[in-house]
């Protein structure tokens, strides 16, 4: 301070030194390289609707404009996982590409979905699936694409094509792939494994770009609708521990009576 005072008083002709730049101002610049970590970048995201999952994800929600890869075996609670985000992505079209079955209008209306926003596309082969996925991912009016990988195997390059297209758009592109590809390398920045367990929907984030994975990924269990639990059959109740005791799993499946009732 004293030196600065001296400089100002002794050498008044020297131009003033530039004002100190705050770190925050620097971080606002787009052209600043910030290293490999994406922790400090402000990527747009949409709330997953599950607080525990938000806490696990880097941007506190599903990242927009980035490919999300879900590895699962058959039907494993995909609507439960994404429905809150799909509802939050209003407006914008929601495209189901090669869905494994027909989305049931009654269930979606019960969940609050606007059916006018939902479009189903059936691509007959892998080439056309990729073309549809990439075109839709680039389109600005497309809020979310949920694509189910066709029977043909996807190469790394093909998934990368989806990734590049996703990065050009601003929607939520999701690619459902069989659980077998979990062990394979994939360029998708966010990869999850999901399966239904007795207590709910178990989700494991096993790859997330920008997060250093130090430990074995910890699975999260998201609750499923209580109405799905149901009551165990009467003859099973006797075998169950008392409610005060720790509750066991779903009653055994080997004693269901399906005798014809006349």
């Amino acid at each position: 301070m004293y030196i600065q005072f001296l400089l100002v008083t002794i050498m008044p002709a020297i131009p003033e030194s530039p004002r100190p730049v705050l770190l925050e101002q620097l971080l606002r610049r787009d052209d600043l390289w910030r290293g490999h970590s994406r922790r400090f970048t402000a990527q747009p995201s949409v709330d997953t609707g599950h607080a525990s999952l938000n806490g696990e994800l880097l941007h506190k929600g599903w990242p927009l404009g980035a490919l999300v890869e879900i590895c699962q075996r058959g039907f494993q609670g995909e609507w439960q996982l994404f429905m809150p985000a799909l509802l939050a992505l209003h407006p914008g079209l929601i495209v189901l590409l090669n869905p494994p079955a027909e989305p049931f209008s009654q269930a979606l209306l019960q969940a609050g979905m606007d059916l006018d926003r939902l479009v189903v596309i059936n691509a007959p082969d892998k080439t056309r699936f990729l073309a549809c996925f990439t075109e839709l991912a680039r389109t600005s009016g497309c809020g979310a694409i949920l694509g189910w990988q066709p029977r043909d195997h996807f190469t790394y390059t093909e998934v990368r094509k989806c990734l590049l297209a996703a990065s050009e758009g601003a929607g939520l592109p999701i690619l459902f792939r069989p659980s077998a590809v979990q062990q394979q390398s994939s360029p998708a920045p966010l990869r999850l494994f999901s399966q239904v367990v007795p207590d709910g929907l178990e989700v494991t984030v096993f790859k997330q770009k920008g997060v250093l994975q130090r430990y074995q990924p910890r699975p999260l269990v998201l609750p499923l609708p209580p109405a799905w639990q149901g009551a165990p059959p009467y003859h099973v109740l006797d075998r169950q521990p008392h409610p005060d005791q720790k509750r066991g799993g779903v009653p055994g499946t080997d004693i269901v009576d399906i005798r014809e009732s006349s």
Binding site: E102, L115, V119, V120, I121, N122, P124, A131, L136
Partner: peptide
């Protein structure tokens, strides 16, 4: 985009549910 996709996969392959 949807028109392009219709040309690619056919009109019947793109629909809404109701």
């Amino acid at each position: 985009t949807l028109a392009r996709l219709k040309a690619r996969v056919g009109d019947a392959a793109i629909y809404k549910i109701s």
